[in-house]
Amino acid sequence: MDISLKNVEYRYSADTPFERLAIQDVNIDISSGSYTAIIGHTGSGKSTVLQHLNALLKPTKGTVFIGNREIKAGRKEKNLKGIREKVGIVFQFPEHQLFEETVEKDICFGPLNFGVSETEAKKRANEAIKQVGLSEEILEKSPFDLSGGQMRRVAIAGVLAMEPECIVLDEPTAGLDPRGRKEIMDLFYKLHQERDLATVLVTHSMEDAARYADEIVIMHKGTVLQKGTPNEIFSDPERLLAHGLDVPDVVRFQLRIEKTFQTKFDRICLKEDELINMLAAFLKRRGAQ
């Protein structure tokens, strides 16, 4: 299922004194099975863009195409449930959405809302809890007796159990420890590869964007500053740095070396071993001179 935003503008509290332009002129295409990362400063409009992907927000201008549906500014929409079933969102701090007595019930909540049978929902809960790296015993516990990190995983399992065709992640690892962060990111990458699950990730981590994404979108002050493959994006690191955005450690290291040796390599490396090889070749050439 493809999703695309065409000239989308969104104003919060439109027509009130609190009106606030959050994004404008945003064009993004997300094809099925792709992995897109959205990067940008805090307040640049990333979360606002995300909420258009399953019609939680309707554009105040422009159009959003989700599969065969068309969400146009200024038109009333009915029956959005079908869209929500296909596009699952994991919000920033999703643990705030937990409410059931047991973890199992909470994970089943989404699937049951979409008309999945009780036995099937339980089966999915069982599967999802293992996917997020928790043991089955947790299913019987109250979600409020868990640690913050466990709650986060349960909330994520609740979205996975909906078995969406596209999963949208708003900083899913914010506030987790480094190991938990890596586990969660690896989990989503595995799902993306095994099930061809289209993934949209909002992140502040350039490392994650460079490592996992096929396509990177850079948001700046409510507009799309740049989009392209990681290689295209990071081939011009100065531009990112000028906008106060970070680049992956590997790239930063390469820039330092280039500066120290007063040289310029012919391309930007995103992988460590790639850089090592290039550096080794360079030093050899230098030594030979």
Binding site: K78, K81, G88, F91, Q97, F109, N113, M162
Partner: peptide, 16 residues
């Protein structure tokens, strides 16, 4: 608003 959105994304309908 935030929680309503999160539950809407999980298939709850608040407005219809």
């Amino acid at each position: 608003d935030k929680i309503m959105k999160a539950q809407t994304a999980r298939g709850v309908e608040y407005t219809s």
